[in-house]
Amino acid sequence: MEKCQVRNNIRKFRFFQNEMTQEQLAEKVGVTRQTIIAIESAKYAPSLELAFRIALVFGVPLEEVFSYTSEDEPA
């Protein structure tokens, strides 16, 4: 089975939301700050529900925040 990765633009969207902190985002989506840190650094792929909640906070479609890349494909 090939290794896949869920990439994200959370850092960029936090910046566009007046430099929203990780803590603020965590509170809005109902998880811990550590989970947001893990998602941002691509150490954890969130569930579909959490991914939708994060996209909803930024007011953008899911595919603008998260993208799916297999390891063989160029990023």
Partner: peptide, 9 residues
């Protein structure tokens, strides 16, 4: 205090 146990935990 927020002692949340989320999906990752």
């Amino acid at each position: 205090e927020r002692f949340i146990v989320d999906e990752r935990d």
